[in-house]
Design a protein around this nucleic acid. Structure first.
Lengths: 157, 157
DNA sequence: ATTTATGCAAATCGTTTGCAAACCT
DNA sequence: AGGTTTGCAAACGATTTGCATAAAT
């Protein structure tokens, strides 16, 4: 399966505390708007585009969305997900959710779902990529293992 | 290591024939400008941005670059590589080169290198992803296994 | 002659930034 | 008050498109 699990009220509270700490660490405040953005991301089943976010958070100005996502990303609270199409998507950072995962991307409609890979596969991938990186003079930071295909809705294009 | 191997004159000739067929199949001509673009991509050691392409092909207009890349992509001659930064990159399609590979992306400067993963890892990945896709109601088309990190130049940001 | 490709310039679209007003401590 | 965050509008950069010209069949 895929998607992020539902979060209990307690879990969301912990989330806010953790993110508050991280923001404080980068000399940033945890403003109400930032909370709203985090709530929207926490409630979503998938990475959200800025357009999604604006639709979900009442009165959120586009500039605030972009600016706050930058701040949250720098604080390590959210991750920017590079997909295929032009619009960037964001989700709570893995460092926060403790759920390492990758993505299923629909080439028809752009839908992006999360999935957690089998642990041993993940281990193999991580180990091999470290070697590949070294050989190319790269210092590894992260990786992505995404699958492209057609979602149920789009199979018959 | 990484990068595409050098191609012999014969291989390049075959490449043009193959791409000519594919274009014909989509009711498109293999114009001189398109040939120049293919030559530039074939000669490159890595995926090229449109800016790279314009620098390599004398007098190539930006609009022609974009338009022809779309045509070539539709004909299955080139692949668009989605990276982190804003500028898209292009390379000869795997269907043409017969060299399945993935990418190393520098988070500092946007550099993208190719690498071919160990066959058994690749097999594992493909098999596991098929299962993941099925579970989510997706029909698998392709996947990407990219590594993000800092290239030698950018390690000390 | 008719269709297709090219180049220039204008238009789009996502994203970023300048600046003055609103907020927080 | 003093520094931060917000919202609006203008600025940007990558990509796309309209249209008239040039090339190919």
């Amino acid at each position: 399966m895929s998607g992020q699990r539902h979060r209990t009220a307690d879990e969301v509270a912990d989330l806010h505390v953790e993110i508050g700490h991280r923001l404080a660490g980068s000399d940033q405040r945890y403003s109400p708007v930032r909370r709203q953005i985090v709530d929207a991301l926490a409630g979503a089943e998938r990475p959200l585009s800025v357009a999604d976010l604006i639709a979900l958070v009442p009165d959120l100005a586009m500039s605030s969305a972009y600016r706050n996502l930058v701040v949250l990303a720098e604080a390590g609270a959210v991750d920017r997900v590079a997909t295929d199409d032009d619009a960037a998507r964001y989700e709570l950072a893995e460092a926060i959710t403790d759920r390492h995962h990758h993505h299923l991307v629909c080439t028809g409609c752009g839908l992006v779902l999360d999935y957690e890979p089998p642990v041993d596969l993940e281990r193999r991938v991580a180990a091999d990529l470290t070697g590949v990186a070294r050989a190319a003079g790269f210092t590894a930071e992260s990786h992505r293992l995404d699958l492209f295909g057609r979602c149920a809705e789009c199979v018959d294009a």
